[in-house]
């Protein structure tokens, strides 16, 4: 019995450009792993391989012991992998509540016939889902905007709505892409605490891509560093932060 998520030797190229050059990575049950690296290091590419948006040319990705490379995306989601998007994937015309409810799709039942005939369990499920969504919105301080169309809200708020949408399905693994983007400093640390608590309550593991170092270091159990598609360091956040290769990747070449 291995870790919850086992990424092994994944290679992904776009034409001549190698986005991922064989990184390996594990995330344990309930663990919070921070994934950091300079822009273009391949963090989002790795996310997209795990979520099935890209198909790596080589390597394996196992979730709960099962190979998921090549599985259709909706099946990967249904296995219990939730995610948020770097540039948002919300339904702009819909209200905040509707967006969060949409996240519960695979965690709830209610097919065409059951819905058309209005079987009692359809209404019961809808009511229960609605309550959970409102609770979740309240926990993320979004209770006041539940009925507002998302198109009118600021970026930082939208990031939290996406988080609520991913959490409502009770994923076993949550892929979070830059949640602090668009937030001011005070909000970032608050978000980090909320994120950790919500995940712990649901027993969800988190793989977190984030540029805000303070957030990554405070939230993560372990940190993995990508550079040019390769894993250059991995381990305890405080030790990784002092790793000369990591420092070089972040500061050296930029100068």
């Amino acid at each position: 019995m291995g870790a919850l998520l086992e990424v092994h030797d994944v290679e992904l190229s776009f034409g001549g450009l190698r986005a991922l050059d064989g990184p390996s990575l594990t995330v344990g049950e309930g663990e919070v792993v921070g994934l950091i690296g300079p822009n273009g290091a391949g963090k989002t590419s790795l996310f997209n391989c795990i979520g099935g948006l890209y198909r790596p040319q080589h390597g394996s990705i196992r979730f709960a012991g099962r190979e998921i490379v090549g599985l259709p995306r909706h099946r990967i989601a249904a296995l219990g992998i939730g995610r948020t998007f770097q540039n948002l994937g919300l339904l702009a015309s819909r209200t905040v509540l509707d967006n969060v409810l949409a996240g519960a799709y695979h965690a709830t039942r209610g097919g065409w016939w059951a819905t058309a005939l209005a079987l009692p369990n359809v209404a019961r499920t809808e009511r229960a889902t609605r309550e959970r969504a409102l609770d979740l919105l309240a926990e993320l301080s979004l209770g006041d905007v539940a009925g507002v169309p998302v198109g009118t809200l600021p970026f930082g708020t939208l990031k939290r709505i996406e988080l609520a949408r991913a959490l409502i399905a009770n994923p076993r693994l949550l892929l979070v892409d830059e949640p602090a983007n668009g937030l001011v400093h005070g909000e970032v640390m608050e978000l980090g605490a909320t994120l950790r608590r919500l995940a712990a309550e649901r027993g969800a593991a988190i793989l977190l891509v984030e540029h805000h170092m303070g957030l990554v270091m405070s939230v993560s159990d372990r940190v993995a560093v990508l550079d040019f598609g390769r894993l250059i360091a991995e381990g305890d956040p405080r030790i990784v932060a002092r790793d000369p290769q990591v420092v070089a990747a972040y500061l050296g070449r930029a100068a």
Binding site: L53, G82, A169
Partner: peptide, 13 residues
Amino acid sequence: DAEVVAETLGVDV
């Protein structure tokens, strides 16, 4: 509105 998002929510598009 967003096919890829629908898929990541578990919808068989």
